[in-house]
Design a protein around this nucleic acid. Structure first.
Lengths: 230, 230
DNA sequence: AATCGTTGTTGACAAATGTCATTTATCTTT
DNA sequence: AAAGATAAATGACATTTGTCAACAACGATT
Protein backbone atom coordinates (compact mmCIF):
# COMPACT_ATOMS: atom_id res chain seq x y z
CA UNK A 1 0.00 0.00 0.00
CA UNK A 2 0.82 3.66 -0.16
CA UNK A 3 3.57 4.90 2.12
CA UNK A 4 3.74 8.29 3.77
CA UNK A 5 6.79 10.46 3.42
CA UNK A 6 7.52 14.11 4.10
CA UNK A 7 10.42 15.29 2.05
CA UNK A 8 9.99 18.28 -0.22
CA UNK A 9 8.45 21.64 0.42
CA UNK A 10 5.79 23.53 -1.54
CA UNK A 11 8.48 25.95 -2.58
CA UNK A 12 9.93 23.17 -4.73
CA UNK A 13 6.70 22.91 -6.67
CA UNK A 14 6.50 26.66 -6.81
CA UNK A 15 9.63 26.55 -8.95
CA UNK A 16 8.09 24.10 -11.37
CA UNK A 17 4.38 24.73 -11.64
CA UNK A 18 2.99 28.06 -12.79
CA UNK A 19 -0.11 27.78 -10.63
CA UNK A 20 1.71 28.22 -7.38
CA UNK A 21 3.77 31.13 -8.67
CA UNK A 22 0.85 33.37 -7.88
CA UNK A 23 1.09 32.62 -4.17
CA UNK A 24 3.01 34.71 -1.69
CA UNK A 25 5.52 33.17 0.73
CA UNK A 26 3.06 33.10 3.66
CA UNK A 27 0.41 31.59 1.40
CA UNK A 28 2.80 28.90 0.24
CA UNK A 29 3.66 28.29 3.86
CA UNK A 30 -0.01 27.82 4.68
CA UNK A 31 -0.37 25.35 1.85
CA UNK A 32 2.75 23.54 2.96
CA UNK A 33 1.29 23.06 6.41
CA UNK A 34 -1.85 21.49 5.01
CA UNK A 35 -0.37 18.86 2.78
CA UNK A 36 1.25 15.45 3.00
CA UNK A 37 3.13 13.30 0.57
CA UNK A 38 2.13 9.78 -0.36
CA UNK A 39 3.85 7.25 -2.59
CA UNK A 40 2.09 4.79 -4.84
CA UNK A 41 3.26 1.71 -6.67
CA UNK A 42 2.35 1.28 -10.32
CA UNK A 43 -1.25 0.17 -10.63
CA UNK A 44 -2.39 1.51 -7.26
CA UNK A 45 -5.46 3.70 -7.13
CA UNK A 46 -4.88 7.26 -5.92
CA UNK A 47 -8.51 8.17 -5.59
CA UNK A 48 -11.70 6.60 -6.72
CA UNK A 49 -14.63 8.05 -8.62
CA UNK A 50 -17.58 8.64 -6.32
CA UNK A 51 -15.59 8.98 -3.09
CA UNK A 52 -15.26 12.26 -1.13
CA UNK A 53 -12.47 14.57 -2.21
CA UNK A 54 -11.10 16.39 0.85
CA UNK A 55 -7.73 16.74 -0.91
CA UNK A 56 -6.54 17.49 -4.35
CA UNK A 57 -3.48 15.82 -5.66
CA UNK A 58 -0.22 17.04 -7.09
CA UNK A 59 2.04 14.52 -8.81
CA UNK A 60 5.66 14.98 -7.76
CA UNK A 61 7.16 11.81 -9.26
CA UNK A 62 6.05 9.14 -11.73
CA UNK A 63 2.86 9.26 -13.75
CA UNK A 64 -0.87 8.91 -13.15
CA UNK A 65 -3.83 8.29 -15.38
CA UNK A 66 -7.16 9.95 -14.71
CA UNK A 67 -10.15 8.10 -16.06
CA UNK A 68 -13.90 8.01 -15.93
CA UNK A 69 -15.30 4.64 -15.00
CA UNK A 70 -18.13 4.11 -17.42
CA UNK A 71 -20.21 1.07 -18.28
CA UNK A 72 -17.67 -1.70 -17.89
CA UNK A 73 -15.05 0.31 -19.73
CA UNK A 74 -12.82 3.18 -18.66
CA UNK A 75 -12.30 6.41 -20.54
CA UNK A 76 -8.86 7.88 -19.90
CA UNK A 77 -9.04 11.69 -19.82
CA UNK A 78 -5.31 12.20 -19.63
CA UNK A 79 -1.96 11.28 -18.18
CA UNK A 80 -0.55 13.46 -15.43
CA UNK A 81 3.14 13.89 -14.71
CA UNK A 82 5.22 16.07 -12.38
CA UNK A 83 4.47 18.78 -11.50
CA UNK A 84 0.84 18.86 -12.49
CA UNK A 85 -2.04 18.82 -10.13
CA UNK A 86 -5.29 16.98 -10.37
CA UNK A 87 -8.40 18.76 -9.20
CA UNK A 88 -11.77 17.32 -10.01
CA UNK A 89 -14.75 19.54 -10.76
CA UNK A 90 -16.40 18.07 -7.69
CA UNK A 91 -14.48 20.22 -5.21
CA UNK A 92 -16.82 23.14 -5.88
CA UNK A 93 -19.98 21.11 -6.38
CA UNK A 94 -20.51 17.99 -4.30
CA UNK A 95 -17.09 17.20 -2.83
CA UNK A 96 -16.96 13.96 -4.74
CA UNK A 97 -14.47 12.71 -7.28
CA UNK A 98 -15.99 12.52 -10.72
CA UNK A 99 -13.17 10.44 -12.09
CA UNK A 100 -10.63 8.02 -10.70
CA UNK A 101 -6.86 8.36 -10.70
CA UNK A 102 -4.28 5.61 -10.53
CA UNK A 103 -0.52 5.38 -10.83
CA UNK A 104 0.74 4.02 -14.13
CA UNK A 105 4.32 4.17 -12.88
CA UNK A 106 5.67 4.19 -9.32
CA UNK A 107 4.73 7.67 -8.17
CA UNK A 108 4.63 10.12 -5.33
CA UNK A 109 2.04 12.80 -4.90
CA UNK A 110 1.19 15.61 -2.55
CA UNK A 111 -2.27 15.62 -1.12
CA UNK A 112 -3.31 19.17 -0.40
CA UNK A 113 -6.25 20.16 1.73
CA UNK A 114 -9.05 21.42 -0.51
CA UNK A 115 -10.42 23.89 2.03
CA UNK A 116 -7.04 25.58 2.32
CA UNK A 117 -6.91 25.76 -1.45
CA UNK A 118 -10.39 27.26 -1.77
CA UNK A 119 -9.53 29.75 0.94
CA UNK A 120 -6.55 30.92 -1.12
CA UNK A 121 -8.72 31.15 -4.22
CA UNK A 122 -10.98 33.52 -2.30
CA UNK A 123 -8.19 35.63 -0.91
CA UNK A 124 -5.83 35.90 -3.84
CA UNK A 125 -7.47 37.04 -7.11
CA UNK A 126 -4.31 36.31 -9.12
CA UNK A 127 -4.32 32.77 -7.84
CA UNK A 128 -8.04 32.47 -8.55
CA UNK A 129 -7.56 33.69 -12.10
CA UNK A 130 -4.71 31.27 -12.65
CA UNK A 131 -6.87 28.46 -11.32
CA UNK A 132 -9.73 29.41 -13.63
CA UNK A 133 -7.29 29.67 -16.51
CA UNK A 134 -6.03 26.15 -15.85
CA UNK A 135 -9.53 24.86 -15.53
CA UNK A 136 -10.43 26.53 -18.83
CA UNK A 137 -7.45 25.06 -20.61
CA UNK A 138 -8.53 21.66 -19.41
CA UNK A 139 -12.01 22.26 -20.78
CA UNK A 140 -10.59 23.21 -24.17
CA UNK A 141 -8.50 20.06 -24.24
CA UNK A 142 -11.62 18.09 -23.36
CA UNK A 143 -13.44 19.63 -26.32
CA UNK A 144 -10.73 18.44 -28.68
CA UNK A 145 -10.93 15.00 -27.16
CA UNK A 146 -14.70 15.14 -27.54
CA UNK A 147 -14.36 15.74 -31.27
CA UNK A 148 -11.67 13.13 -31.63
CA UNK A 149 -13.68 10.46 -29.87
CA UNK A 150 -17.08 11.19 -31.37
CA UNK A 151 -16.29 12.22 -34.92
CA UNK A 152 -13.10 10.46 -35.93
CA UNK A 153 -12.68 6.87 -36.93
CA UNK A 154 -10.26 4.59 -35.17
CA UNK A 155 -7.22 5.53 -37.25
CA UNK A 156 -7.70 9.21 -36.49
CA UNK A 157 -8.21 8.52 -32.81
CA UNK A 158 -5.05 6.42 -32.51
CA UNK A 159 -3.16 9.12 -34.41
CA UNK A 160 -4.41 11.68 -31.87
CA UNK A 161 -3.38 9.44 -29.00
CA UNK A 162 0.11 8.90 -30.41
CA UNK A 163 0.62 12.63 -30.97
CA UNK A 164 -0.58 13.28 -27.42
CA UNK A 165 1.73 10.66 -25.96
CA UNK A 166 4.79 11.67 -27.94
CA UNK A 167 4.42 15.42 -27.64
CA UNK A 168 2.52 16.11 -24.44
CA UNK A 169 3.25 13.16 -22.19
CA UNK A 170 6.64 11.61 -22.88
CA UNK A 171 7.88 14.65 -24.81
CA UNK A 172 10.30 12.66 -26.90
CA UNK A 173 10.52 10.48 -29.96
CA UNK A 174 11.19 7.59 -29.86
CA UNK A 175 9.43 7.10 -26.53
CA UNK A 176 8.74 4.23 -24.21
CA UNK A 177 5.08 3.53 -23.80
CA UNK A 178 4.67 3.02 -20.07
CA UNK A 179 0.93 2.46 -20.39
CA UNK A 180 -0.63 -0.80 -21.52
CA UNK A 181 -2.40 -1.42 -24.83
CA UNK A 182 -5.62 -1.49 -22.85
CA UNK A 183 -4.81 2.01 -21.60
CA UNK A 184 -4.08 3.14 -25.15
CA UNK A 185 -7.46 1.74 -26.13
CA UNK A 186 -9.16 3.47 -23.19
CA UNK A 187 -7.53 6.72 -24.26
CA UNK A 188 -8.87 6.31 -27.80
CA UNK A 189 -12.30 4.94 -26.98
CA UNK A 190 -12.01 1.56 -28.67
CA UNK A 191 -11.34 -2.08 -27.89
CA UNK A 192 -7.85 -3.25 -27.04
CA UNK A 193 -7.81 -5.48 -30.11
CA UNK A 194 -8.65 -2.61 -32.43
CA UNK A 195 -5.92 -0.44 -30.94
CA UNK A 196 -3.36 -3.19 -31.46
CA UNK A 197 -4.48 -3.76 -35.04
CA UNK A 198 -4.19 -0.10 -35.98
CA UNK A 199 -0.78 0.17 -34.36
CA UNK A 200 0.24 -2.75 -36.53
CA UNK A 201 -1.13 -1.09 -39.67
CA UNK A 202 0.77 2.11 -38.90
CA UNK A 203 3.90 0.00 -38.54
CA UNK A 204 3.28 -1.75 -41.86
CA UNK A 205 2.72 1.58 -43.58
CA UNK A 206 6.02 2.89 -42.26
CA UNK A 207 4.44 5.60 -40.12
CA UNK A 208 6.21 4.27 -37.05
CA UNK A 209 8.41 1.49 -35.78
CA UNK A 210 7.78 -0.36 -32.55
CA UNK A 211 9.87 -2.76 -30.57
CA UNK A 212 8.06 -3.93 -27.51
CA UNK A 213 6.97 -0.80 -25.74
CA UNK A 214 9.30 1.53 -27.60
CA UNK A 215 7.60 3.50 -30.34
CA UNK A 216 9.34 5.70 -32.87
CA UNK A 217 7.14 7.99 -34.96
CA UNK A 218 8.82 8.15 -38.36
CA UNK A 219 6.25 10.15 -40.29
CA UNK A 220 4.79 12.82 -38.07
CA UNK A 221 3.20 14.59 -41.07
CA UNK A 222 1.31 11.48 -42.09
CA UNK A 223 0.09 11.03 -38.52
CA UNK A 224 -1.11 14.63 -38.49
CA UNK A 225 -2.87 14.05 -41.78
CA UNK A 226 -4.65 10.95 -40.47
CA UNK A 227 -5.66 12.91 -37.37
CA UNK A 228 -7.14 15.72 -39.44
CA UNK A 229 -9.02 13.62 -41.97
CA UNK A 230 -10.54 11.40 -39.29
CA UNK B 1 -30.19 40.13 -39.12
CA UNK B 2 -29.99 40.66 -35.39
CA UNK B 3 -31.75 43.73 -34.06
CA UNK B 4 -30.63 45.81 -31.12
CA UNK B 5 -33.00 46.55 -28.28
CA UNK B 6 -32.55 47.86 -24.78
CA UNK B 7 -35.41 46.84 -22.60
CA UNK B 8 -34.71 44.97 -19.43
CA UNK B 9 -32.21 45.62 -16.68
CA UNK B 10 -29.66 43.31 -15.08
CA UNK B 11 -31.77 43.34 -11.97
CA UNK B 12 -34.34 41.29 -13.88
CA UNK B 13 -31.83 38.56 -14.49
CA UNK B 14 -30.67 38.87 -10.92
CA UNK B 15 -34.12 37.66 -9.91
CA UNK B 16 -33.88 34.62 -12.13
CA UNK B 17 -30.30 33.44 -12.30
CA UNK B 18 -28.38 32.42 -9.21
CA UNK B 19 -25.05 33.62 -10.59
CA UNK B 20 -25.91 37.27 -10.40
CA UNK B 21 -27.37 36.97 -6.92
CA UNK B 22 -23.84 37.22 -5.57
CA UNK B 23 -23.42 40.74 -6.95
CA UNK B 24 -24.12 43.91 -5.00
CA UNK B 25 -26.33 46.66 -6.39
CA UNK B 26 -23.39 48.79 -7.57
CA UNK B 27 -21.82 45.74 -9.17
CA UNK B 28 -25.04 44.90 -10.98
CA UNK B 29 -25.19 48.50 -12.08
CA UNK B 30 -21.68 48.27 -13.50
CA UNK B 31 -22.63 45.14 -15.40
CA UNK B 32 -25.79 46.77 -16.63
CA UNK B 33 -23.80 49.63 -18.10
CA UNK B 34 -21.57 47.25 -20.04
CA UNK B 35 -24.17 45.18 -21.79
CA UNK B 36 -26.55 45.38 -24.71
CA UNK B 37 -29.43 43.29 -25.86
CA UNK B 38 -29.62 41.67 -29.28
CA UNK B 39 -32.41 39.69 -30.87
CA UNK B 40 -31.92 36.73 -33.17
CA UNK B 41 -34.26 34.91 -35.51
CA UNK B 42 -34.34 31.13 -35.42
CA UNK B 43 -31.33 29.74 -37.24
CA UNK B 44 -29.15 32.81 -36.85
CA UNK B 45 -25.66 32.40 -35.49
CA UNK B 46 -24.98 34.18 -32.20
CA UNK B 47 -21.26 33.64 -32.19
CA UNK B 48 -18.96 31.51 -34.20
CA UNK B 49 -16.25 29.10 -33.10
CA UNK B 50 -12.81 30.59 -33.65
CA UNK B 51 -13.85 34.25 -33.50
CA UNK B 52 -12.85 36.63 -30.68
CA UNK B 53 -15.08 36.63 -27.63
CA UNK B 54 -15.21 40.16 -26.19
CA UNK B 55 -18.66 39.42 -24.73
CA UNK B 56 -20.35 36.56 -23.10
CA UNK B 57 -23.96 35.90 -23.74
CA UNK B 58 -27.02 35.55 -21.57
CA UNK B 59 -30.19 34.21 -23.13
CA UNK B 60 -33.23 36.24 -22.07
CA UNK B 61 -35.81 34.79 -24.48
CA UNK B 62 -36.03 31.79 -26.80
CA UNK B 63 -33.46 29.03 -27.02
CA UNK B 64 -29.94 28.57 -28.31
CA UNK B 65 -27.82 25.56 -29.14
CA UNK B 66 -24.11 25.52 -28.44
CA UNK B 67 -22.12 23.19 -30.62
CA UNK B 68 -18.59 22.30 -31.56
CA UNK B 69 -17.96 22.39 -35.28
CA UNK B 70 -15.99 19.27 -35.95
CA UNK B 71 -15.04 17.47 -39.14
CA UNK B 72 -18.07 18.14 -41.32
CA UNK B 73 -20.40 17.35 -38.44
CA UNK B 74 -21.49 19.35 -35.42
CA UNK B 75 -21.56 18.14 -31.85
CA UNK B 76 -24.23 19.84 -29.78
CA UNK B 77 -23.05 20.36 -26.21
CA UNK B 78 -26.35 21.61 -24.93
CA UNK B 79 -29.43 23.76 -25.33
CA UNK B 80 -29.54 27.06 -23.47
CA UNK B 81 -32.71 28.78 -22.36
CA UNK B 82 -33.59 31.84 -20.26
CA UNK B 83 -31.96 32.83 -18.00
CA UNK B 84 -28.76 30.93 -18.55
CA UNK B 85 -25.53 32.40 -19.69
CA UNK B 86 -23.01 31.06 -22.13
CA UNK B 87 -19.36 31.57 -21.36
CA UNK B 88 -16.77 29.74 -23.34
CA UNK B 89 -13.56 28.51 -21.73
CA UNK B 90 -11.71 30.82 -24.12
CA UNK B 91 -12.37 33.97 -22.09
CA UNK B 92 -9.56 33.08 -19.71
CA UNK B 93 -7.26 31.51 -22.27
CA UNK B 94 -7.12 32.94 -25.77
CA UNK B 95 -10.18 35.18 -26.03
CA UNK B 96 -11.63 32.96 -28.72
CA UNK B 97 -14.86 31.04 -28.89
CA UNK B 98 -14.26 27.30 -28.74
CA UNK B 99 -17.77 26.48 -29.83
CA UNK B 100 -20.47 28.17 -31.84
CA UNK B 101 -23.91 29.23 -30.66
CA UNK B 102 -27.01 29.72 -32.74
CA UNK B 103 -30.68 30.42 -32.06
CA UNK B 104 -32.97 27.42 -32.44
CA UNK B 105 -35.99 29.59 -31.71
CA UNK B 106 -36.44 33.34 -32.09
CA UNK B 107 -34.40 34.65 -29.20
CA UNK B 108 -33.01 37.66 -27.42
CA UNK B 109 -29.75 37.72 -25.53
CA UNK B 110 -27.67 40.10 -23.49
CA UNK B 111 -24.12 40.53 -24.54
CA UNK B 112 -22.04 41.40 -21.51
CA UNK B 113 -18.53 42.78 -21.65
CA UNK B 114 -16.08 40.07 -20.64
CA UNK B 115 -13.57 42.47 -19.09
CA UNK B 116 -16.22 43.85 -16.76
CA UNK B 117 -17.15 40.32 -15.84
CA UNK B 118 -13.56 39.29 -15.13
CA UNK B 119 -13.09 42.42 -13.08
CA UNK B 120 -16.04 41.41 -10.90
CA UNK B 121 -14.64 37.90 -10.56
CA UNK B 122 -11.45 39.44 -9.17
CA UNK B 123 -13.22 41.79 -6.81
CA UNK B 124 -15.99 39.65 -5.45
CA UNK B 125 -14.91 36.25 -4.09
CA UNK B 126 -18.51 35.07 -3.69
CA UNK B 127 -19.16 35.83 -7.32
CA UNK B 128 -15.90 34.11 -8.31
CA UNK B 129 -16.84 31.02 -6.34
CA UNK B 130 -20.27 30.93 -7.89
CA UNK B 131 -18.69 31.26 -11.32
CA UNK B 132 -16.29 28.41 -10.62
CA UNK B 133 -19.15 26.35 -9.27
CA UNK B 134 -21.14 26.84 -12.47
CA UNK B 135 -18.11 26.06 -14.55
CA UNK B 136 -17.56 22.90 -12.52
CA UNK B 137 -21.15 21.79 -12.91
CA UNK B 138 -20.78 22.19 -16.64
CA UNK B 139 -17.65 20.05 -16.58
CA UNK B 140 -19.50 17.31 -14.70
CA UNK B 141 -22.32 17.39 -17.23
CA UNK B 142 -19.71 17.13 -19.98
CA UNK B 143 -18.27 14.02 -18.33
CA UNK B 144 -21.65 12.34 -18.42
CA UNK B 145 -22.03 13.30 -22.04
CA UNK B 146 -18.55 11.93 -22.66
CA UNK B 147 -19.55 8.54 -21.31
CA UNK B 148 -22.85 8.58 -23.13
CA UNK B 149 -21.28 9.37 -26.48
CA UNK B 150 -18.24 7.14 -26.25
CA UNK B 151 -19.50 4.09 -24.40
CA UNK B 152 -23.18 3.73 -25.19
CA UNK B 153 -24.76 2.41 -28.32
CA UNK B 154 -27.23 4.44 -30.29
CA UNK B 155 -30.29 3.39 -28.31
CA UNK B 156 -28.68 4.47 -25.05
CA UNK B 157 -27.57 7.77 -26.53
CA UNK B 158 -31.01 8.62 -27.88
CA UNK B 159 -32.51 7.67 -24.52
CA UNK B 160 -30.10 10.09 -22.84
CA UNK B 161 -31.00 12.82 -25.31
CA UNK B 162 -34.72 12.32 -24.77
CA UNK B 163 -34.35 12.42 -20.99
CA UNK B 164 -32.25 15.58 -21.31
CA UNK B 165 -34.79 17.24 -23.58
CA UNK B 166 -37.83 16.29 -21.55
CA UNK B 167 -36.41 16.99 -18.11
CA UNK B 168 -33.73 19.62 -18.50
CA UNK B 169 -34.69 21.58 -21.59
CA UNK B 170 -38.44 21.62 -22.17
CA UNK B 171 -39.23 20.53 -18.61
CA UNK B 172 -42.50 18.91 -19.57
CA UNK B 173 -43.96 15.75 -21.00
CA UNK B 174 -45.34 15.64 -23.64
CA UNK B 175 -43.09 18.28 -25.14
CA UNK B 176 -42.68 19.92 -28.50
CA UNK B 177 -39.33 19.25 -30.07
CA UNK B 178 -38.26 22.65 -31.37
CA UNK B 179 -34.97 21.27 -32.67
CA UNK B 180 -34.62 19.35 -35.92
CA UNK B 181 -33.89 15.65 -36.26
CA UNK B 182 -30.43 16.64 -37.44
CA UNK B 183 -29.98 18.52 -34.16
CA UNK B 184 -31.15 15.47 -32.22
CA UNK B 185 -28.57 13.45 -34.13
CA UNK B 186 -25.86 16.05 -33.42
CA UNK B 187 -26.77 15.88 -29.76
CA UNK B 188 -26.43 12.09 -29.78
CA UNK B 189 -23.40 11.78 -32.01
CA UNK B 190 -24.93 9.80 -34.81
CA UNK B 191 -26.36 10.23 -38.30
CA UNK B 192 -29.76 11.82 -38.80
CA UNK B 193 -31.07 8.59 -40.33
CA UNK B 194 -30.05 6.54 -37.32
CA UNK B 195 -31.69 8.98 -34.92
CA UNK B 196 -34.94 8.79 -36.86
CA UNK B 197 -34.85 5.01 -36.98
CA UNK B 198 -34.35 4.67 -33.23
CA UNK B 199 -37.12 7.15 -32.53
CA UNK B 200 -39.34 4.96 -34.65
CA UNK B 201 -38.30 1.83 -32.78
CA UNK B 202 -39.06 3.49 -29.44
CA UNK B 203 -42.46 4.39 -30.82
CA UNK B 204 -43.11 0.82 -31.99
CA UNK B 205 -42.07 -0.53 -28.60
CA UNK B 206 -44.54 1.79 -26.87
CA UNK B 207 -41.86 3.78 -25.04
CA UNK B 208 -43.19 7.01 -26.53
CA UNK B 209 -45.71 8.42 -28.93
CA UNK B 210 -44.89 11.08 -31.46
CA UNK B 211 -47.04 13.23 -33.68
CA UNK B 212 -44.95 15.52 -35.80
CA UNK B 213 -42.71 17.35 -33.39
CA UNK B 214 -44.69 16.47 -30.28
CA UNK B 215 -43.19 13.67 -28.25
CA UNK B 216 -44.78 12.02 -25.27
CA UNK B 217 -42.59 9.74 -23.16
CA UNK B 218 -44.88 6.95 -21.97
CA UNK B 219 -42.38 4.69 -20.27
CA UNK B 220 -39.81 6.75 -18.46
CA UNK B 221 -38.50 3.72 -16.58
CA UNK B 222 -37.78 1.83 -19.77
CA UNK B 223 -35.96 4.85 -21.17
CA UNK B 224 -33.86 5.02 -18.01
CA UNK B 225 -33.11 1.33 -18.33
CA UNK B 226 -31.97 1.71 -21.93
CA UNK B 227 -29.82 4.65 -20.89
CA UNK B 228 -28.14 2.65 -18.14
CA UNK B 229 -27.51 -0.53 -20.07
CA UNK B 230 -26.09 1.31 -23.07
C1' DA C 1 -53.51 25.07 -57.06
C1' DA C 2 -48.72 24.50 -58.70
C1' DT C 3 -43.98 24.78 -57.75
C1' DC C 4 -39.99 24.64 -55.18
C1' DG C 5 -37.03 23.84 -51.35
C1' DT C 6 -36.43 21.91 -47.03
C1' DT C 7 -36.99 18.39 -43.73
C1' DG C 8 -38.32 13.91 -42.45
C1' DT C 9 -38.60 8.82 -43.62
C1' DT C 10 -37.41 4.42 -45.45
C1' DG C 11 -34.70 0.55 -47.46
C1' DA C 12 -30.58 -1.61 -49.21
C1' DC C 13 -26.06 -1.96 -48.75
C1' DA C 14 -21.15 -1.29 -47.31
C1' DA C 15 -17.94 -0.05 -43.97
C1' DA C 16 -16.45 0.24 -39.30
C1' DT C 17 -15.96 -1.85 -35.05
C1' DG C 18 -16.50 -5.13 -31.23
C1' DT C 19 -16.46 -9.89 -29.50
C1' DC C 20 -14.72 -14.26 -28.87
C1' DA C 21 -11.41 -17.83 -29.10
C1' DT C 22 -6.80 -18.95 -29.68
C1' DT C 23 -2.02 -18.36 -29.93
C1' DT C 24 2.22 -16.05 -28.82
C1' DA C 25 5.24 -13.28 -26.14
C1' DT C 26 6.84 -11.42 -21.79
C1' DC C 27 7.73 -11.34 -17.11
C1' DT C 28 7.76 -13.14 -12.47
C1' DT C 29 8.15 -16.66 -9.31
C1' DT C 30 9.63 -20.88 -8.03
C1' DA D 1 15.39 -23.62 -16.31
C1' DA D 2 10.39 -24.57 -15.63
C1' DA D 3 5.98 -23.04 -14.63
C1' DG D 4 2.51 -19.88 -14.21
C1' DA D 5 0.49 -15.52 -14.79
C1' DT D 6 -0.25 -11.53 -17.40
C1' DA D 7 -0.19 -8.85 -21.54
C1' DA D 8 -0.01 -8.77 -26.53
C1' DA D 9 -1.25 -10.35 -31.05
C1' DT D 10 -4.06 -12.60 -34.49
C1' DG D 11 -8.07 -14.46 -37.08
C1' DA D 12 -12.97 -15.35 -37.80
C1' DC D 13 -17.16 -13.67 -37.26
C1' DA D 14 -21.32 -10.92 -35.79
C1' DT D 15 -23.06 -6.55 -34.83
C1' DT D 16 -23.38 -1.77 -35.10
C1' DT D 17 -23.51 2.18 -37.69
C1' DG D 18 -23.03 5.23 -41.67
C1' DT D 19 -23.91 6.17 -46.56
C1' DC D 20 -26.50 6.55 -50.51
C1' DA D 21 -30.58 6.82 -53.08
C1' DA D 22 -35.24 7.30 -53.38
C1' DC D 23 -39.43 8.99 -51.75
C1' DA D 24 -42.95 11.40 -48.75
C1' DA D 25 -44.47 15.28 -46.08
C1' DC D 26 -44.60 19.97 -45.13
C1' DG D 27 -44.33 24.93 -45.65
C1' DA D 28 -43.43 28.98 -48.28
C1' DT D 29 -43.86 31.31 -52.41
C1' DT D 30 -45.68 32.23 -56.72
Amino acid sequence: MARFTQTSNCVDCNCKSSVFKKLSIPELELMNQNRFEVSFKAGEIMFKQGTPSPHFLCITRGMAKIYIEGLGKNLILGLIKPVEYIFGPGIYVDNRHHYSASAVEDSTACMVDVETYKQLVRKNPDFAEEFIRRFSQQAIINFDQFISLTQKQMHGRIADALIYLSEKVYCCNPFELTISRQDLADLSGMSKESAIRILKEFKEEGILTSEGNFIHVLNRGQLQHISETG
